[in-house]
């Protein structure tokens, strides 16, 4: 068996899910690909340890989020987000939600965006999100609160997605 066969298998199985997370974090297909690629290089560097009882998924997710936050620290112009590339023009509510939410996410601070993705896309608990972000449980709670509040301010039309009732479903 080649040294990299285990890594190849891991990437083959997980890369699309990881790419979706990277895309939600960056909002740009090229940046997402760059981000995931650079993280996978790091993962491969640690593969010896990870394949012997480590948790490659958790390690990769953590590296992905932290690399993303690191990239975003400099105040710089973001590449524009891809403009609805795959879906046809539609006026239904879900399409509108997707467009508005994409724009609203782009206006969150990097850590706020990361916490939204971890809690509401990856379905991590607050404790798991704190572990990924390397911060306290309280910090995750406050970041989540502020991120949701900011989304509600930026995009009041998303109220039906961000209602207390909807959010409590995740908290339970």
């Amino acid at each position: 068996m080649n040294d990299h066969d285990g890594f190849r298998e891991f990437v083959l199985v997980r890369q699309q899910a990881l790419m979706r997370t990277a895309y939600l974090l960056t909002g740009d297909a090229h940046l997402a690909e760059d981000l995931l690629q650079s993280v996978l290089v790091k993962v491969l560097g640690q593969w010896g340890k990870l394949s012997k009882g480590g948790d490659p998924v958790a390690y990769t997710r953590k590296a992905l989020v932290n690399q993303y936050i690191s990239w975003r620290r400099r105040p710089r112009v973001e590449l524009p987000s891809a403009s609805v590339p795959e879906h046809g023009v539609s006026s239904d509510d879900r399409t509108l939600d997707r467009i508005v939410l994409r724009e609203a996410l782009a206006r969150l601070a990097p850590k706020q965006r990361a916490v939204i993705v971890l809690r509401f896309w990856e379905d991590l608990t607050e404790a798991q999100a704190a572990d990924v972000l390397g911060c306290s449980l309280g910090n995750v709670k406050s970041q989540t609160h502020h991120a949701l509040a900011r989304l509600r301010t930026i995009a009041p039309e998303l109220a039906h997605l961000l209602s207390e009732h909807e959010i409590e479903k995740v908290a339970r």
Binding site: V11, Q15, L44, R94, D97, R102, L161, E166
Partner: peptide, 30 residues
């Protein structure tokens, strides 16, 4: 949740990739 559904709709635009070979090449270069 409906928020997760909306996030899923955005995530569906993520490109299809095959990054294993790229990562291995990057690791060797490093």
């Amino acid at each position: 949740t409906r928020l997760r559904e909306a996030l899923g709709d955005i995530a569906a635009d993520a490109p299809m990739v095959n990054l294993a070979d790229l990562a291995i090449a990057g690791h060797r270069r490093r």
